[in-house]
Amino acid sequence: MREEGNGLASRQQAVAAEIPRLRRYARALLGDDGEAEDLIQDTLERALARLQQWREGDNPRKWLFSILHNLHIDHLRRKSRRPPHVGLELLGTDQSSPSADAAGGDIDVALRHLSTEQREVVLLVGLEGLSYAETAEVLDIPVGTVMSRLARGRERLRTLMDYEGGGDRNGRTSLRRVK
């Protein structure tokens, strides 16, 4: 068993080492530097309060991302007080038919057109490189849900980014959607 102080120091370092990735993810998720910093600040604070509970050897990234995720949900709920649970899927989502104009070729703008839930999955997998299983754990949802959100989110992004331009529209649209 290691000395408590050293254990804490190495945990602190492990947490500190994740901060750049957390910031990147928060910025991509929220689309706003200020809001992202607030979320990271809260994440650090909560991580601090729980540092003792974090078991050495646990993946700090997964742990921190799930703290961030839970806080993000809290933030969203506070924003849309009522009804508390409904609306997550819609927040930040423009349901009008998306067009390339909407994003202007900027993936950051395109991501704003996804639901929060789709955006989380698209970013955890595509930006952070988490596996489906890790993503499912971080978000506390089944792996199947990760996959379906991922598929829907990316489909929307491809449309927004106008990837189908160039001819092979048939090939693309004839893809079978598998549940």
């Binding site: 408590e4 102080g5 804490l8 602190q12 947490v15 500190a16 901060i19 910031r23 910093e37 990271i40 600040q41 650090l44 604070e45 601090l48 540092l51 003792q52």
Partner: peptide
């Protein structure tokens, strides 16, 4: 954020 980090000192 730095002030957040500074507070990583529970003991």
């Amino acid at each position: 954020l730095e002030s957040g980090l500074k507070r990583f000192r529970p003991p």
